[in-house]
């Protein structure tokens, strides 16, 4: 199932690539089999043409009988389930029969206590990443923001500024394209691109896999540029040393109140594009006040990636952290 919208289609695969690895001929033909309710047919794809998969043969019906034993009495019953699927996305189910848990007065079945956090697995993998990073003495930054706040430009300037002082590596997260990875490579840092397909955030497992590809040397800086999104990435620990949220002055100064979870889970807030302050209504003092309401421990850097003003303090912090 698709992990983004929950439709019946397979999710777009997550791709983890270095620049140059993505090139493959798009006109090649490959064959594969589909199975629809026992009917198997093979067909070819030519990647030059866009195509959709339908599940024409997926309409099916099934019926079954079963028997329950109770302590005091027994009864037989049957239920039939009629499913109609068009494409698996908006399938409507009609269920005849009953739900066991809706039986008034008592529950059938065995109750098993679980008490496990829904994000437990991601957190475990994140801790594994963190252990690896600490053992290698890596300073790892998870860079989060809305799309267009200037994360990639900030990275390009940062790579240039730390040259000769430390090794710096980058993991780029985007839904699609190698564009950002190519920019980072041109700026001079080893980079791995994670394309999440439909996914709206990076998770610890993706970072774990990307980290393997980077083959980093000890005592380096790793910057993970998350998917541009102020909501979803906030819940997913990647194992980073510090989380850095970027907002730009072309956005609203009330962003920290609108997306509190991201500001609450961040350590640093960068206010970017300060060269545009004379032309916009953004109030830096207000933005800071709102952000501190959400997270009283937040530290700030005000800077302009374009003019370089304020960049020094950010670079110093990065090098001290490392």
């Amino acid at each position: 199932m698709c992990g983004t919208c929950g439709c019946g289609q397979n999710d777009q695969p997550i791709r983890i690539l270095k620049p140059g690895e993505e090139n493959h001929p798009h006109s090649y033909i490959h064959a594969h089999d589909h199975s629809h309710d026992g009917k198997i047919h093979a067909h070819n794809h030519d990647h030059k043409y866009a195509h959709n998969h339908g599940f024409d043969d997926a309409d099916h019906q099934h019926e079954h009988l079963h028997e329950h034993q109770h302590d005091s009495d027994s009864h037989d019953h049957s239920h039939s389930q009629n499913h109609d699927h068009d494409c698996g996305c908006n399938n409507e189910h009609s269920h005849d029969g009953h739900h066991h848990n809706e039986t008034a007065g008592h529950k059938h079945g065995r109750q098993i206590s679980i008490e496990e956090d829904a994000l437990h697995r991601n957190d475990l993998t994140a801790q594994r990443n963190r252990g690896y990073f600490e053992a290698k003495n890596l300073f790892v930054v998870n860079l989060v923001s809305s799309p267009g706040s200037g994360k990639t430009s900030l990275l390009e300037k940062t790579i240039a500024a730390v040259k000769g002082k430390t090794e710096i590596y980058v993991i780029e997260g985007d839904q699609q394209t190698m564009n950002d990875a190519n920019r980072i490579k041109a700026a001079g840092a080893p980079v791995v691109q994670i394309n999440t397909g439909n996914g709206c955030h990076l998770d610890a497992d993706m970072v774990h896999k990307a980290t393997k590809k980077l083959e980093m040397t000890d005592k380096s800086v790793l910057i993970i540029e998350n998917v541009g999104n102020l909501v979803c990435p906030s819940l997913f620990d990647l194992g980073e040393s510090k989380r850095v949220v970027v907002i730009s002055v072309t956005e609203g100064d009330d962003k920290p109140l609108k997306y509190p979870t991201m500001f609450q889970t961040s350590d640093i807030c960068i206010i970017n594009k300060t060269d545009l302050l004379p032309y916009v209504d953004f109030d830096v003092a207000k933005a800071r006040e709102y952000a501190l309401r959400v997270n009283p421990n937040l530290m700030f850097f005000e800077l302009s990636v374009k003019t370089g003003q304020g960049m020094e303090a950010w670079i110093d912090w990065l090098l001290v952290g490392f």
């Binding site: 992990g3 983004t4 929950g6 679980i114 994000l119 697995r121 998770d203």
Partner: peptide, 19 residues
């Protein structure tokens, strides 16, 4: 919509315990 990836994680936990 991170809820979907969280829901899939929940179902994984459930299935593991059920199995």
């Amino acid at each position: 919509m991170h809820e979907f990836s969280i829901a899939i994680g929940i179902i994984e936990i459930v299935n593991q315990h059920a199995e």
